[in-house]
Design a binder for these strands. Structure first.
Lengths: 200, 200, 200, 200
DNA sequence: TATGAATGAGGCTTCATTCAT
DNA sequence: CATGAATGAAGCCTCATTCAT
């Protein structure tokens, strides 16, 4: 049974619900929500179908729990990058690298997120969470830089989503072709553009 | 650009095409691929279920046709913006506005695209199409600007996806909260950042 | 495929819904609601499971339709007996015989009704219908007799349910042991008791 | 009369028995046999699911035990009413009141009985018990009255079920609309009809 | 004696797809 | 060209029952 990287975050006895939770994530990310059957999840974990329903109300609840957990993990990584007592620029640099590293490591999860972004199914409020929580980390750094006058007084909402979009889509661009993200060149290029712009 | 088979049946020409988009695409977007039934699509278009299968091999082909058609439409808009005999900077400006205008107008399609981006289902090669065709428009302008030395010699692949991501995620950010995109402020802000960067 | 007697009431082409309706009744009455599977119904009719759902929203709707129809049939029989231009006593006599005849002929249906009487499942309002509509027929005759002073001025609500109970439970008593109802003796005995009482 | 195995566990004796009735029987009655889960019963009683299976072979046996116990309780009440050294008429009067009082007090059980009456499931022989044991009480009184020539020489089988039906359905009529049974008026009315008939 | 985690058979329902008309 | 009745495979979920502790 494959373990997703991000499952490492759960330490201690993998009892019941937790155990299912982690294993199911792998299956869901590999095949997507609809193509994954509860039977497959059960088989992958090595328990019976009934056991899934003993711990989770239904397939959807299990799925949402995984999404939510993944977002928390992502947020955690970003927050860590932004917490250092560095300059705003350096924080941005760390966020860029942290973002790429997370995307590379949790590729499956990232695809899952992207799918949910456009979803009208049920996880729209999850999306709100994600944009709210994770974008906020970027925004805080931006606003700090503006306050410290190292950044120009831009509209923080717009520029936050712009920065986040640069990173996300670039990461996705590489990942979707199963190429690795060229961590240093890409990070440097995006820093450069974001800080200095493309014009001479 | 391919015409959907029964486009002409309904009012003919452009109108028929619009008709299809506003019905089938709308339904798919509102409920997602899996939650949308062929029956609903048929009802939305105003034909019977059998008719769908008369023109399309199956649900998936219909869906892909819509995606493809939407991408074509998007590409068309971008290409138009890039064709003008303007400076690279002005072309970028036009692309930014064109991107936002399209996203605002074809909101449903945009959500559909996003959903597909993360898909493991079947439309991965569609995604390739999209990124290839549409990103190429941006890339051509970038490379033109670099060649003309109005832009710095950046890595075109990375910066193209960065620019595209800025636009896409910003548009999505506004649309997902059902706010309209603030066309002029957002366009100006993104131009400014992309051209000049955030640092003083 | 067995035909319930009461299905004779439906003349004309047994199309779709009607056809399923009638055949399903037989299966339901033989095994009861819960022990009857949709698969069995489909098999009994000779159609596929999907066809059931093409015509009925779900198992329950199919069942309720059958119950409702049966009650209507019962009410119809009673109403006919009460419509004759006879004396109240004669109408009572006819109602008694009509009740017994119906119970004998539609034994399966009667058991179905009884089961529903005590049900808390979903058909409680059906029960209300039944008691309201069918008891009303008895009550009208009673009140007519009271008005014409051939009956004593009893409480119509109580005596109606009493008369109805005499008939129903007596019929049930015989049917539940798979004995036929002794039509004439039983009818005469109940008439006699109801009209004259047991005391000398 | 059998004691439910774990009756004594809970408060012991009569109270324990009441406890069982008010919990298990109550749950069964509120939701019906099939819609009641063993888990709910266990929760209502305040034990774990396993405990149910420690004392009862399966759900059905538990259910039948409750039915049987209820019938015993009912029979007990009737027998008490019929044991007094009163006249046959007075015994009938007492049976009528006893019947109503029981129905009012054990409303849940009565609904349960009614449901079983129409059942094709498994408790058909329970029904036989009930009709046999309880009807016999009425019948004994009737035959005593006939022998003593205070009642006319009617067919005891038919008239027993008739009397029983009058009471049962009238009680049910009131209970099913959640109205209380009007004890005195209803008792008097049924006595009157049963003794004297409706005709002048 | 009591528990509750685990099971797995079985039921209901959905819906993409076909095909005779 | 167009229909819509009919299908049946496939999936989700329930819940009575078991058993190790």
């Amino acid at each position: 049974m494959s373990q997703l990287p991000f499952t490492e975050v759960f330490k201690g006895g993998k009892e019941g619900r937790q155990y299912i939770f982690e294993s199911a994530a792998g299956v869901f990310t590999k095949k997507g929500y609809h193509k994954t059957t509860v039977e497959e999840i059960a088989a992958a974990i090595g328990v019976s179908k009934g056991t899934i329903y003993y711990y989770f109300k239904n397939k959807e609840e299990l799925y949402l729990a995984i999404i939510r957990e993944g977002i928390d993990l992502f947020h955690e990584q970003l927050a860590k990058a932004a917490q250092s007592p560095a300059s705003p620029q350096d924080k941005i640099r760390k966020l860029i690298r942290g973002h790429f590293i997370f995307c590379e490591k949790e590729k499956d999860l990232v695809f899952l997120f992207l799918k949910e972004l456009g979803s009208t199914d049920f996880s729209r409020e999850i999306l709100a969470d994600m944009l709210a929580k994770c974008l906020q980390v970027f925004r805080n750094v931006l606003e700090e830089g503006i306050a410290k006058k190292v950044f120009r007084p831009v509209n923080p909402e717009i520029i936050t989503s712009a920065l986040f979009g640069m990173l996300t889509i670039t990461a996705f661009h590489y990942l979707s072709y199963s190429r690795g993200i060229p961590l240093e060149p890409a990070s440097l290029a995006l820093e450069d553009i974001f800080f200095n712009g493309i014009c001479r």
